[in-house]
């Protein structure tokens, strides 16, 4: 099979782990894979107990996100399955993807975070609804902080006094995550962690 990113034939070196199917086969070649840089950072935020990010936002990642989200190449949802699964495994928690606004989701034809989790074979629950269509990147810090709540709990959903993990593709200013975490906590969640695929530097 060809690499999903560079379309060159993939050369897979056989390993014992792949033979006994411990290691999930990757969709991209080693050269493309090496372009992505791990950051493995854990931060603490307001209203949120921890935020774990896996990769840095570099040129390769920018191109990846462009093709996945803007060119709508849903086949790329599985590129980071191994890493996401690893970051989300062994945790007793309810996994909640950051949702898209319904109109935006129809435009994109898929919800990118849900698809990342599905591809990684991680079970999750859609508990939140996005209530407005605004894009964080177009706002100043003051505007972002003064915004009314971005999310609400889905109707007929009970939030338990337990641990939740929010998942998003990219973490920049943290506004989205804070809003989502606060919504969950106000509804009764005990602990809220977050895992994001990418940590981007906030441009302040």
């Amino acid at each position: 099979m060809n690499c999903l990113l560079c379309e060159q034939p993939k050369q897979s070196s056989p390993s014992w782990q792949s033979l006994i199917a411990i290691e999930k086969s990757t969709l991209i070649c080693e050269d493309c894979s090496n372009q992505f840089k791990r950051v493995d950072i854990i931060e603490v935020g307001d209203n949120i107990d921890s935020i774990t990010s896996i990769f840095t936002y570099n040129e390769a990642m920018r191109n990846y996100l462009h093709q996945y989200k803007f060119l709508q190449d849903i086949a790329l949802a599985g590129v980071f399955s191994n890493e996401l699964k690893q970051a989300l495994s062994k945790k007793k928690a309810i996994i909640v993807p950051i949702p898209m606004h319904p109109t935006k989701k129809i435009e994109r034809t898929f919800a990118q975070v849900d698809e990342l989790l599905k591809a990684a074979d991680v079970s999750f629950e859609d508990l939140l609804i996005k209530t407005n269509q605004e894009v964080m990147g177009e706002k100043t810090r003051e505007e972002r902080l003064s915004m009314s709540r971005l999310f609400q709990i889905k109707p007929q959903v009970e939030i338990e006094s337990t641990t939740y993990i929010l998942v998003d593709d990219i973490y920049t200013t943290g506004t989205t995550m804070q809003h989502a975490a606060l919504t969950l906590k106000e509804a009764g969640a005990k602990t809220v962690h977050a895992v994001t695929l990418i940590r981007a530097a906030s441009e302040q």
């Binding site: 190449d73 989701k105 129809i106 034809t109 898929f110």
Partner: peptide
């Protein structure tokens, strides 16, 4: 994939996706 726009199973071409 399951398309949120046409609410059905949808196919797309990766050959000319760029």
């Amino acid at each position: 994939f399951n398309c949120a726009k046409c609410e059905a199973s949808c196919a797309y071409c990766r050959n000319c996706i760029k």
